[in-house]
Amino acid sequence: MKTLLVAESRQNKLLSGSYETVAFARRMDAEAVMFLVGSESDLPKFDGRLYLVESSAAGEYNPEEHLRLLLEVVAKESPELIVFLHSSYGWDLAPRVALALQASQISEVIDCDGGEMVVPVCNAKLQRVVAARSAMTVVTLQTGAFSLEGVPSGSPTVEKLSGENDTKIRFIGYEEAEAGGVDLSKAGVIVSAGRGIGKPENLAMIEALAKALGGEYGASRPVVDSGWAEHSRQVGSTGQTVAPKLYLACGISGAIQHLTGMKKSEFIVAINTDRDAPIREVADVLVVADLKQFVPALTASLENR
């Protein structure tokens, strides 16, 4: 089987997630060529053919042009499988490519089972096994699901393509996250509040527990989006990545984007009314309880210790 791996770069830096596509190709025991809109100054360590387009020419986010270039490579290589990461770049470009090729697309693959792909559904409470019915298949891989053993090595045979940066969707610029706020990566203990806290007033009990444990409080995205906590406290793929000695997830279901930010914590405790909440997958202890009763009670026992 032949695969076309789509690597990613941002501001001329290769994104390390690109190697997850290589890990996937190895797992499939497939031949691989790679495509990258990026920079010659930071090439992927990969033994094989690399189609390279300078992002100074094609733009970093220019889906129409990236689609055109990818189709050019597909015409040359005739891959059976085109592999993206399920990232802001991959989930945007993959359906465009699939549609142009009348190929099937399977999103957020976490495992493969022969030729069939396994994908999580319903916040990972269930899994689907999906088969393609088309000659060509496009997949996007859940970030972190496939990883290379050892450090990447190799050097590609580069074939350059030229791109144009003319598009209906004009790129104006990047906006960095606001600097400042709390640096959660320094905290030894983090107690995080999820949507399960119900109302902003209940954040106080999460803060009190964090204080009793000598740590900081964090939050899941809905708590931040609702304006109940500042963005610097958000844990997850679009927030901070943390690995404290102890992480307490209070009223957090455990969506993959949240897990990405905290699953490397040394010890994880989850407090949730739902015994099947997916946070259970990473928790060392799951306390099945209403946080509104449990959290103040725990704080009190810590203070009376």
């Binding site: 009348q102 689907r128 088309s134």
Partner: peptide, 24 residues
């Protein structure tokens, strides 16, 4: 359709964490 679902299943529980239930 371009894809077909072969089956849907509950994931294998890998996490061997402790589950605590009962009085607060």
């Amino acid at each position: 359709a371009l894809t077909a679902t072969t089956l849907t299943r509950f994931p294998d529980r890998k996490g061997g964490g402790v589950i605590l239930e009962g009085e607060i």
